[in-house]
Simulated scan of single mutants.
Amino acid sequence: MTTVLDRPPRVPKTRTADRKRRYGERPSVAYLFLSPWIVGALLLTLGPMAASLYLSFTDYDLFTSPEWTGLDNYLRILTNDPHFWNSVWATTKFVVISVPVQLAAALGVAMLINRRSRAQGTYRSAFYAPSLLGASVSVAVVWRVIFHDWVGQPNRALLALVLLAVWQFGAPMVIFLAGLQQIPQEYYDAVAVDGAGRWRTFVSITLPMLSPVIFFNLVLDTIRAFQVFTGAYVISNGTGGPSDSTLFYTLYLYEKGFVEFKMGYASAMAWLLLVAVATITALLFRSSRRWVFYGGDA
């Protein structure tokens, strides 16, 4: 006769198993909650991307049906369009100058306001306010009036746009401030005992511990700098002048697509920009292995 002791012990059901029993058999519920995102991604992101990729191989003017031309748009862009290379050069100079200067300004201000004081909240709000305005038309108009003498000179027009970008350093500043507050005070106390000065402390403690945040801001600001449009459009009156000095890539793309109605040509330019930004981002990630240090790194 089988006794109670001979029976195998009963394994109680866990909460995880209970959830699998209740929800695992009904995946339609998950898809129902995901449906707004899925519809938005298909209609607003993936669909337009697929359409622009197709149009990049066509001759399309928004009024007639697209005519397939193969790689003709790409060949004309790369071999027979001097304004295209002027826009690439202007954009490259803007990115190379504005991104490091903006990050340096954001880090410097973050270190200054990373101290306890009665007016701490006021300082942070004041420095962050320009980023709330963003690249609005009204700000660009005011900037054009302030730097009126610079806008008409090819050697200085780009600097006006660089200063406009640097002035809006609030977003990376807040991220730097959060990173600075995560650095343990014990590290600073240790180097102070060793007699290290401010510069040595900054180089040996602050920069290495802040390197993941620097890398994060660097990637975001680089991508954002390649997409600058409003400031260049307003300050140059939509011409990219003088002498194509402010003819940013996005401005020239807009001119081709919505002024000259060469939508196929503009779509090809958009995909070239996507490939270029993706390549630069991949190079930044690859270089981060040498100078970005995370908590688990030796």
Rank of each mutant, 00 (worst) to 15 (best):
L158G: 03
W150C: 01
A140R: 01
I146W: 10
G134Y: 05
T92P: 05
S87V: 09
I146F: 07
G152L: 00
L132F: 09
V88K: 02
Q168G: 01
I146Y: 14
L164W: 09
V99T: 11
W150V: 02
V101N: 07
V95C: 01
R118S: 14
W89Y: 09
H83D: 14
V151F: 00
V151L: 08
R118Q: 15
S138A: 14
A157F: 00
A160W: 08
M173L: 09
A157R: 00
V162Q: 01
Q153T: 06
V96I: 05
L133S: 14
L164C: 10
D81K: 04
V166Q: 04
L107I: 06
V162N: 02
V101L: 15
D149Q: 07
F127T: 07
S117H: 11
A110K: 01
A165Q: 15
I175L: 11
R144H: 07
F94N: 00
V174Q: 05
P130M: 10
V139L: 09
S98N: 04
K93F: 10
T122I: 11
V166A: 07
R144T: 10
L103G: 03
N86W: 12
A129Q: 10
W167V: 11
L133C: 13
V139K: 02
S136N: 03
D81I: 07
R118G: 13
A129V: 12
A129D: 11
V174P: 02
N155G: 09
W85H: 11
V109W: 00
A160N: 08
T122L: 12
P130N: 12
L103V: 11
F84L: 12
V109K: 01
L159N: 10
A110N: 04
V99Y: 01
V174A: 11
N114K: 03
V99H: 02
W167P: 04
I113D: 01
W85M: 08
Y128N: 03
L164Q: 10
A135K: 08
G170S: 05
G121P: 05
V151W: 00
F84C: 04
V99E: 02
L164Y: 13
A165T: 15
A119M: 14
V137P: 08
V101F: 14
R156F: 12
I146D: 15
V88F: 05
A104M: 13
F127L: 06
R115N: 15
